[in-house]
Design a protein around this nucleic acid. Structure first.
Ligand SMILES: [Mn+2]
Ligand SMILES: [Mn+2]
Ligand SMILES: [Zn+2]
Ligand SMILES: [Zn+2]
Lengths: 135, 135
DNA sequence: TTTTTACTTTAGAATTATTATAAACTAGAA
DNA sequence: TTCTAGTTTATAATAATTCTAAAGTAAAAA
């Protein structure tokens, strides 16, 4: 992924390319495998890997703008912190309780043979499979 | 379910049968269908349906004791509040985004034909299917 | 029964994750 | 360069949850 794509992510999220935002966008999107993170873990990575200072509010604001623009998704994980995901396609997860890590599962890797019909007047929006791991 | 069962729930959770705890236990376990709730919704129901006063801390403490004893389970739902479940068997859920309500799905109603194997050195602990509903 | 003890309830303080605020700063237009 | 709207930041506010310690109560001991 080139720098022009980073700028595109920012522009399409309605964000000016400031120093902090470019660093965040590069960190999130300039990689070839999915990245799952919390705001806290992202902050740690950013302060470790860049020479830039980040107010927590800037990280929250930028991540929310990316999410709103569809560049990030959110994953439900037990616990108090919100998990975000750079994989915005429909997919499933392994969750390692020991390490608190998420691992992507492509939809093609899970086949559901039988599923109940939605309650009266409702439709199925999407199906999420969450596989808890143990040692 | 008889009162003796309520007392058994309390005893097996290491809790003395006080007025508040008996009311909470009756409200949660003296019913024949699953009850999904947040601490806030439970507090509302309790103050509405009983003549007893409940400190929030008492509700939190009691629910956590029940959960620790295995009488309640927790469900991951998007949002900030923790959801609890009186159904402690392995099962799945519909989630209605409009009403924020959970509906149980028995494991027999979902058949998974193909599932990826767990990552190296890990085992599958359980599989949770979460079906989001829309109108 | 009364007394004693350990456990419980409670109001309010503390903590944690998140969101809001408003003053100082800056990218990009004019 | 100057101007303006948007941005960063420290800090305050909020929401869910947990902690605390004083006052109350269940159940054991006497
Ligand atoms: Mn969560
Ligand atoms: Mn949750
Ligand atoms: Zn993912
Ligand atoms: Zn359930």
């Amino acid at each position: 992924m080139k720098k022009v794509d980073i700028l595109k992510k920012l522009r399409s999220s309605g964000l000016r390319p400031t120093k902090q935002r470019v660093e965040i966008a590069k960190f999130l999107f300039d990689r070839d495998t999915t990245f799952h993170f919390t705001i806290e873990s992202l902050e740690n990575h950013l302060t470790k890997k860049t020479s830039c200072k980040f107010a927590l509010a800037t990280i929250y604001n930028t991540i929310h703008a990316f999410k709103k623009a569809g560049h990030l998704s959110e994953v439900d994980v037990r616990g108090k912190k919100t998990y975000f995901d750079t994989n915005i396609t429909n997919h499933h997860h392994f969750y390692d309780n020991e390490t608190s890590e998420l691992i992507d599962i492509d939809t093609s890797e899970i086949v559901i043979q039988k599923i109940p019909k939605a309650p009266n007047g409702k439709k199925i929006k999407n199906v999420e499979v969450f596989i808890n791991l143990k040692n």
